[in-house]
Design a protein around this nucleic acid. Structure first.
Lengths: 359, 359
DNA sequence: CTGAAAGCGCTTACAG
DNA sequence: CTGAAAGCGCTTACAG
């Protein structure tokens, strides 16, 4: 018995050998012709015969065999905590796929749920399949430790950075985003009554849902805001705290508390869209209109921005562009390790106007 | 020159041959031990030596070689129009991944953007890589034509059906969902003033954005609604049209028009959450409160439901369960071709109350 | 210009 | 009980 009798192949798939037989040439010749190798100077007649035979038989080379021989599989993996399975941040996959499309590579999507033993198992499984590269990503922007196994393949960090100096990373430019938000309000005439909504309570580094995720976004957005305001000769009037996750209900209660405190904001910079939507609800309950009585701007640029009236102006996470760039860097065999910061564009809604005359 | 000198391998990866050498046994023995084949009755001593050698060398078998030999790759592909890259429906990926996790299989995510030439290229690419099965999905529920290439591998349809009688498909139970929505309103005391919001204009089969997608959802939800209402001795008071896509702005204008028409609805069944949110906005503009003046229920169960106040009650698309079941069926080598309908649970918000006394 | 041969790293029927 | 050999379907240096 030979292998064929057990192999799941023999399912009718045509092999290179059969093409060679039909064309009356050697298998080498078929390989050379079909891979367009011109350095072998095959006769035009041979080429034609091979091509015709391949066509007639409907031949398509087996990639597994090719991979075993060449060591390159034409596949890339996106390994992340939750990117593949969470709607937020998911458009990073679209960006990755776009870049891979041009390179004719296939994508493995792998979510580890943040469990490191699962992560190791999956990384090993990918490496054993000879993946050409790995995009190691995070759903939210943060600092990660590079798993040892990751170094068995070329890799690029997506939406996260590491403390190692030899890595290539792609993250959104959150500092510039903070400045963009502040500038949008300054341009509209706001100055001394701008509040930020969404800092954590003292000692906390993030919500329970993401086990102390310590998002880079918060610190960097604040830094950009502070810089822009101080360049304009002012600063934040205050920072409202959010207890736990950055969601609608917490945004609502945070802003309700702020309004009840006697503070007199003219504009709110909300740490994300959900908090911004919560702010809308608190403002409405207090009889304040957006944007006439209060301007609001937030970060993320999610679908929530168009679910409210007036639509919410938001500094947008460039998820698709992040994914696209990460895949490009990986495929191009990026040389210089460094952090690439992708700009966060301002998506205009109708939530900003000049401050009320009374302030 | 042998192959090794050109192969990308020789990157330090340990092979089975090296394990055999270190353990002082044949390669067959190593393979048998590591694959737990007991029918060979290897000595306990041999087994231990092999296991220790493998451990010491950090051996992990190359899956590409295994695949070439056995014909099975331990991979599954999710091929769809937009599932992998759109936030809506994306949790189907999570369900698929959950099932694959148990089977220790890896997932290729492939989006075709609905382009059939791209689809063919990608399917061929997957088949050439010996995928064990393909989940062929659609972002929204509809009837698809099964591509010929798909038949080169076991496959299951996810969130779509075909006219072929030999296929296995998994879709949400939209008919029952319609009944669920109607029943929720009937139980609250609504009867003769229930309106549906979201039918297409005469002759249209869907919005421009999805090139006439002809969603099954619409017809089936309406059917379920009609059945439940008629069992209660009533029927829809009317059906409000939506011009194009089922989005917030169109929902708002549709309901605004309805209210201006002199109709006296006590409850609205909105075709999806976005339209429901639009309905909220139109109601608020008209000075009507949800749920005191008007009850609202919708379909999808998306994050939009918690972005409004009061939160929106919605019959939820079981995306995760759909994905999980499709992958399970694929892995279990499903036998009987049939359509599996997954229940759509009711996600309670606060948008339903008894009808106002005036009606 | 072309073909025979080796080899990628596995699995497995078969002979001892 | 174990080992040598064949084979999965390719690619490629090398000899003619």
């Amino acid at each position: 018995m030979d292998g064929r009798s057990q192999g799941q192949r023999g399912n009718g798939r045509v092999t290179l050998t059969e093409v060679a037989k039909r064309a009356g040439v050697s298998r080498s010749a078929v390989s050379f012709v079909l891979n367009g190798r011109t350095d072998q100077r095959l006769s035009a007649d041979t080429s034609n015969r091979v091509r015709r035979a391949a066509e007639e038989l409907g031949y398509s080379p087996n990639t597994t065999a090719k991979t075993l021989r060449t060591g390159s599989s034409g596949t890339v993996a996106l390994v992340s905590d939750f990117i593949g399975t969470t709607s937020f941040a998911n458009s990073m996959v679209r960006g990755v796929l776009e870049s891979l499309h041009d390179a004719d590579a296939l994508l493995y999507t792998v979510d580890t749920q943040g469990e490191s033993s699962l992560e190791s198992r999956l990384l090993l499984s990918l490496i054993n399949r000879d993946v050409d590269g790995i995009i190691y990503g995070s759903m939210f922007t943060r600092t990660v430790a590079v798993p040892a196994l990751l170094r068995n393949a070329p890799f690029v960090l997506l939406n996260c950075v590491s403390d190692d100096s030899d890595t290539t990373a792609v993250i959104p430019d959150e500092v510039a985003a903070g400045a963009t938000a502040a500038t949008a309000l300054l341009s509209a005439g706001h100055h001394d009554h701008i509040w930020f909504v969404g800092v954590f309570p003292p000692g906390a580094t993030g919500g329970a849902a993401w086990h102390n995720w310590s998002p880079l976004a918060l610190a960097e957005r604040l830094q950009g805001i502070d810089t822009a305001l101080s360049a304009a000769g002012t600063k934040l009037a205050g920072r409202a705290m959010i207890d736990d996750d950055w969601d609608v209900a917490n945004g609502r209660s945070s802003v309700a508390k702020l309004l009840a405190s006697g503070a007199t904001p003219s504009a709110l910079i909300c740490v994300n869209d959900a908090v911004g939507v919560g702010a809308y609800q608190a403002l409405q309950a207090a009889g304040l209109r957006v944007p006439d009585d209060m301007s609001v701007i937030s970060f993320d640029g999610s679908p929530l921005t168009t679910a409210v009236l007036p639509t919410l102006t938001s500094v947008t996470l460039p998820h698709e562009a992040l994914g696209r760039l990460a895949a490009q860097l990986l495929l191009s065999g990026t040389t210089v390790p460094r952090i690439h910061r992708v700009p966060m564009p301002l998506t205009l809604g109708h939530s900003i106007s000049t401050p009320p005359a009374t302030r």
